[in-house]
Structures are given as C-alpha cells and as structure tokens.
C-alpha cells in the first residue's frame, strides 16, 4: 500500500502506532508530542503524547475533556500553545500548511451550511476550497454523496434537508477529497439508528487506507466501528488501546444490566484516572 502520510522521501508507514513519534524515517498520520492547546483561556489539551496511523480511532471522554479542541488542532483550525504536532508527515507549525490541508477531511462539531446551495453545490463548493483537481471534482462529489446515501437528494436545497441529512452532507464534504486524515467531531449526532449503522460501515471502509479520528460521546459507536480508542480527561491521555483492552478495564467494576462492558471499562478508567490525579 502506498504511504499516504509521508512524502516520497519518507519510509512506508507500518500499521503499528506505538513507535517513537519523532523517529526520523517514520511518519504517522498524527504525531503529537507534549501537545498543549488552549480553548480561550482554558488549557483544554495538556501535554498530550499521541500517535495515530491507518485505521479508525475513537476519541472518547466526558464533556470538557478536550476532544473538540484536540480535533480542531488536528484540523489546523486551532494553533497549539506548546509541543510538537506533525500531521500526514508534515509539521503543522513550520511545514507546508496548504499541502497538509489538502490531505485532511474535517467535520466540525457545529457544522453550518448555506441554505440556498443544493447538497451537490455545497459539497462541490468545499471540494473547490480543498483545491481538488478540476477534472476530479464532479465525480468525487457524486461519489461522496452516494456514499452517505444522499444521491437522490443531491439537487435539494440545503435549507430543505433534515438535520440528519445535513450531517450526512457534512460527512460527504469531509470525505470528498479522499483524505489521508479524516477528522469527525460528533458525526453521528442527529443520525437515526439505520443511518448510524450505515455510517459505521462507511467508517470501516474509509479506515482501511486512511487515518480516521472520530470524537464521540457514544461509546457503542466506538465499540462497533473503531479499531482502537483514545480516552481523554481534562486534556490528558487516560487510556489508549484496542476495544478489547477497554472492555477488559471493566473487570472488577460493578456489573449493571443497563451498561455494556465498553461503557463500564470507560467509566472505570475515568474513575481510576481521577482518583490518581486527586491523590
């Protein structure tokens, strides 16, 4: 598989994501070292070390954990306060930001739209902003809308679409440029159960050769669609591992018929982290 995260000068990207993020011949889709990012005056991401590679990564955490701020920093919308950040093999601070952004797809948490545009025009508009090659745009737009199940509503005005459909247009614009790094902030908000199942399928498909980071409150989405999970609290890394490890963290936690093993693992890890931090 050609390495999508590095320039030709860099080595092919291996699957494992547990290596040294600063190794000179190695480029991860995301490599953050001691990364700190502010949200206003608040330090929302605090000294985070994280590497992510091909696959679907669930970004979990309670409200105020720093998920959205981290996603914004990965989307190069918010500049880091301190630390190092490399994305798709390019330094996010001193590197070619324009080139970097061509390889990123981003669905913000609050995704707006121009109501007078049709769905096709709107995705096309963002495809042009992503500087996609002229000849590739019409087919890429049609394909993106088809992948989110909106081919039949492509010529409907954005203002006439439901909240779930608008979210799917948001996902379509994020994937239209076939990004090497796809960042989705609360992508399933407003989607009905059937759409969520279809969306998880799409995630797994995109994650086969891209790095997908999904920020969500819905632990079951992570369990169903993600290869691994990253758990944040107060801007710090609480847990990083695969879904089996997250479930295993529930061992010893009180069982409750209303919660899944993943949810119990999530809660147990958070409580353990807070107890340690408070100690």
């Amino acid at each position: 598989m050609p390495d999508r995260f590095t320039s030709a000068a860099l080595a092919k990207s291996p699957k494992s994501s547990s290596q040294d993020p600063l190794a000179p011949t190695r480029a991860f889709a995301v490599a953050a070292q001691a990364l700190s990012v502010r949200a206003g005056r608040h330090l929302a991401v605090d000294g985070l070390d994280l590497t992510l590679d091909t696959g679907v990564h669930g970004l979990l955490g309670p409200n105020g954990a720093g998920k959205t701020t981290l996603i914004k920093a990965l989307a190069t919308v918010q500049r880091p306060q301190a630390g190092k950040l490399s994305l798709v093999g390019i330094d996010a601070e001193g590197g070619d930001l324009r080139e970097l952004r061509r390889h990123v797809g981003y669905l913000p948490q609050n995704f707006g739209f121009y109501p007078r545009y049709t769905a096709r025009e709107f995705v096309e508009y963002l495809a042009w902003l992503k500087e996609m090659p002229r000849g590739a745009v019409p087919a890429a737009v049609d394909r993106a809308l088809d992948r989110v199940g909106l081919a039949d509503r492509a010529d409907s005005r954005m203002g006439s679409l439901s909240g779930g459909m608008i979210r799917r247009v948001g996902i379509a614009q994020a994937i239209v440029n076939d990004p090497a790094l796809l960042l989705l902030d609360e992508p399933t908000a407003g989607l009905d159960p059937e759409q969520r199942v279809a969306f998880r399928r799409l995630l797994r498909e995109v994650g086969r050769d891209s790095c997908v980071v999904v920020s969500t409150h819905l632990v079951e989405d992570v369990a169903a669609a993600c290869d691994d999970a990253v758990l944040l609290d107060r801007g710090q890394l609480v847990f990083r591992g695969n879904i089996g490890d997250l479930e295993a963290a529930a061992d010893g936690a009180p069982r409750d018929a209303a919660t899944s093993a993943v949810e119990r693992g999530y809660t147990a890890l958070l409580q353990e982290f807070r107890a340690r931090a408070g100690a």
């Binding site: 190069t76 324009r98 990123v104 913000p108 121009y114 500087e131 614009q173």
Partner: peptide, 18 residues
C-alpha cells in the same frame, strides 16, 4: 460575515485555499 454566521468558518479555515 456569512461563513461565521452560518458556522462554516471552521470547515473553511481547515481548507487549503488561501
């Protein structure tokens, strides 16, 4: 003001077009 009013500024800022 339309991009910010419509909450599109983040998606636009993340795009490479200068």
């Amino acid at each position: 003001g339309s991009a910010r009013r419509r909450q599109l500024d983040d998606a636009i800022t993340a795009s490479p077009l200068p």
